[in-house]
Amino acid sequence: MTDFAERRRMMVDTQVRPSDVTKYPIIEALLAVPREEFVPDAQREGAYADRNMDLGGNRTLIEARTLAKMLDALDIQSDELVLDVGCGLGYSTAVAARLAVMVIGVEEDETMSVDAQSQLSEVGADNAIVHVGPLTDGAAEHGPYDVILVQGGVEELPDSLLAQLKDGGRIAVIFMTGALGEVKIGYKRGEQISWRFAFNAGAAVLPGFARKPEFAL
C-alpha cells in the first residue's frame, strides 16, 4: 500500500524547501492537503512527481515547487480573499484555502468543477467554492480579490481579470513565450499593475490566454 503521507513529506523536503520556501503556513498546507486525491485515479501514483501533470482538458496540475514559490511570493494573509483561475480538480484551491479566509476556484470544465467541489468538501476545505465559467471571466460577483493565482501558462492576460483585483492586491502569472516561462507577480496600485520577475517556470497555456494572431494586410 502506497504511503502517500511519506511521499508528501518527501515532496516538501526535496522539492519545496530546497527552493527556499520556508514559510510555515505554506509548508503546513502542502503537508496537509492530499495531492493524490486531486488527480485522475490513473495518475495517483505519479501525484508527487517533480513535474507538471496533465489533467486533461488543457488543465495542468502545476509542480509543487512552482505552486509553493508562487504562494511564497504572494504572501497570502489569513484575512484575504483569493481567486484561483483554472483550478482543475481543486488542489491549488485546497492549498490556498489553508492560507486565506476564502478561495474561489474558477473552472470552465463542468465535470472537472463538480469533481473539484466534491474533493474540496472531502478534505474539509469549507472556505473554498468552485465557480463554473470561462477562465478569462474570473468570478467578478465574488470579488474584488486581494490575491489572484493563475494555474497555467499565459501569453495574454485579459483586462477582465485584472479588473477583479483590489487596489493593493497581488496576482501571480506564468507568462509563456514559446516554451520558456517566467513567473511574475503583479502589484495593483490604482488602475496600474507593476510587474516583478519572481522565477522561471513553465506550464501549458490555458484556454483563452493564448496570444491572438495578428493580421496584416
Results as ranks from 00 to 15, higher is better:
G178R: 05
A5R: 14
A216T: 11
G181V: 09
K212I: 11
I148C: 02
A172P: 08
L99S: 09
L157I: 10
A64D: 03
Y145A: 03
M70D: 13
I76H: 11
G105F: 06
H131Q: 00
L74N: 01
D75F: 00
F199S: 12
A198V: 04
L162T: 15
Y145C: 01
V39D: 10
P34V: 06
D20S: 10
S19C: 08
A216W: 05
G124K: 11
M102E: 14
M1G: 12
Y48V: 07
A100L: 06
S113H: 00
P207L: 10
E110V: 15
R35D: 13
E156T: 12
L149T: 15
L165M: 02
G124Q: 11
A49P: 00
A203I: 03
I129V: 15
G178E: 12
G56Y: 09
V154E: 10
G186D: 01
S118M: 11
N127H: 11
E182F: 02
G190E: 07
G202W: 10
A47Y: 03
T93Q: 09
A97M: 01
A201Q: 05
A201Y: 01
Q151E: 15
A163K: 13
V154K: 02
G208K: 04
V16N: 09
I171L: 10
P207Q: 01
C87Q: 02
P207D: 01
E191L: 06
I76E: 10
L74A: 14
A204L: 07
H131T: 00
G143M: 12
Q151I: 12
T136G: 13
G152T: 07
V147Y: 00
A140R: 04
G190A: 07
R17F: 02
R8E: 11
L162F: 01
E110D: 14
P144G: 06
L61A: 03
G168A: 03
S92E: 15
G88P: 03
E110G: 04
A172I: 10
P158V: 13
A42E: 15
G169M: 04
S194G: 12
V12F: 11
